[in-house]
Every structure is written in C-alpha cells, then in structure tokens.
C-alpha cells in the first residue's frame, strides 16, 4: 500500500505544471515551432524577435520613450488590431450574407434573430466605427509630435491614403445591410459624385464635355453612374460596394499597410527627439 501511494506521489510530481511545461518545451514538436524556446535570457529575447514573422515587424530593441503610451497613444496599433478583428468578423459574416436585393436584408435580419450568440455583426460595426476614430486620433498624435517631418514625409502620405481607405471601407460597408439607414446614407453620399466638375452631370463644366450635339456626360455616363453602376442605389451598387468592401479595398489597404509598417522601420523607428 505504501508502495502504491509513493508511486502516486511520484506521478503527481511528474505532472506538476512546471514539469509538464518543461516536458513540452523540450519536445521535438515544440522546438520545431518555436526555435528559440522560452525567451528567458536577453540573447533569447533578441532571437525571438528575429525568428518570428509576426514579431519581426518590430526591431529587436526600441527607444524607451518611443513606446510609452503617453507618447504614442497606441492609436496606430489599435487601428491595426481593429483592422484584423474586422477582417476576422467580416469573414464570418460573409458565410451568412448574400449581396442581392432579395437576400441582403433578410440575411442580416436572420443573423440577428437566428444565429446563436450572434454578435459578430455588432463587433464588426462597432469595431468599424472605433477604427475610424482610432485612425483620426493616430493622425492627430503623429501631427502633434511632428512625426511627419523628415525623414517620415512619405510615410505620412501613405498614412493619409490609408485614412481615406478606412473611410471608404466604412462607407462601402454601410450599404450592405440594405435597410433604410443604409441606402439613404449612400444615396446622400454618392449624390455628391453627381456634382463632380466636368465628370458629373450636375457639375460645373459638364456642359462643355460634348462634341456637336452629343453630350458625353449625362446621368447615365457620369461619375455617379460609375460609382453605383446605375442611376440610383440599386442591385448593381450593392454588388459593387460588396466586392470593394470585401476584396478590393482591404487588398489595397493591406498592401499599403505593409509599406507603412516597413517604412516606420526604415525611417528610423518610432519617432523621438533627435
């Protein structure tokens, strides 16, 4: 009997969290995934930054003042994190949503009423609003610390384009629920395109865009028509906005984000006093 309890004690000892952790960390599988192992020494802490595709976005060492929250406000990071969560929740929403006049609204309604724990749309919508605010505040911080000054001029420009893309992403997504809020907001917004100088049929100079009697810019060939794929916000507009929202704009934004992050490193890391 005593023998048995001793064996039990031995087994429990071997199964203590520290031992199990050690065992896992020494296993071949773990070593194959995390080359460096647990970063418990400065050398390993440096190697871990170099070895991971995600972490290598960061330098191995950073200026202490550059990572303080009161300096960066963390807004760029928050924006990126929101972009990732929006990509994830957006992907899940795509399983349930069909961008046609027949189904769009019904699918969103079913998402709310039929899908258990269906808060993906909520996370997506509130995350999108938060991302717009976070981008604005990021721009605000970068301006207030003068971080657009040389050598970071170009990266500021990339950032401005990313800000515009964020607004466009939010704008295209606004139409997709296909409720009254959606189509009238997009109608008000896209009506502006009708007044584009030379390219909109109610814009100044559009009357000049003609050859003899043939007017090139009318309500079926102007900037608004190109945006909506029709004369009003209808099926074609829904499909266009869907494709731009789910594929076109995120691709461009992702591409520019890669440049944006790369240039932070190349331009000398997070800004700080020279």
């Amino acid at each position: 009997m005593a023998n048995f309890t001793d064996r039990l004690k031995e087994i429990f000892k071997a199964l203590s969290p520290a031992k199990v952790g050690e065992y896992i960390q020494e296993s071949q599988i773990y070593r194959s995934v995390f080359r460096v192992g647990v970063p418990d020494s400065d050398r390993k802490r440096m190697l871990v930054m170099l070895g991971s595709v995600f972490l290598h976005l960061h330098p191995v060492k950073v200026r202490k003042s550059g990572i303080r929250m009161r300096y960066t406000w963390c807004m760029g990071g928050i924006t990126f994190f929101l972009f990732l969560s929006l990509t994830f929740t957006g992907l899940l929403l795509m399983f349930y949503y069909r961008p046609t006049l027949e189904y769009a609204y019904v699918d969103i309604r079913d998402l709310r009423e039929q899908v258990p724990l269906g808060i993906m749309r909520e996370i997506h919508r509130w995350g999108a609003h938060a991302m717009v605010i976070a981008v604005w505040l990021h721009m605000y911080r970068v301006f207030m610390t003068g971080s657009y000054k040389p050598p970071r001029e170009f990266n500021w420009n990339v950032g401005v384009i990313l800000l515009v893309l964020t607004l466009l992403l939010s704008f295209t997504g606004y139409l997709l629920p296909w409720d009254q809020l959606a189509i009238w907001a997009i109608t008000v917004g896209s009506n502006m395109a009708r007044a584009t100088p030379f390219a909109g049929h109610e814009g100044p100079g559009s009357a000049l865009m003609k050859l003899g009697d043939i007017a090139f810019v009318n309500n079926q060939s102007d900037a608004r028509f190109a945006l909506l794929g029709g004369r009003f916000v209808g099926e074609a507009a829904l499909l266009r906005f869907y494709v731009l929202h789910c594929v076109g704009l995120p691709l461009v934004a992702g591409f520019l984000m890669a440049i944006h992050f790369w240039r932070i490193r190349r331009d000398g890391g997070i800004s700080g006093p020279l």
Partner: peptide, 10 residues
C-alpha cells in the same frame, strides 16, 4: 528616456 533602448520583448 531616449538614451536607453529597451528590448522589444518583453
């Protein structure tokens, strides 16, 4: 604090 650089991890 600008003089001292710290390790990104942690």
């Amino acid at each position: 604090e600008t003089a001292d650089k710290v390790l990104t991890w942690p």
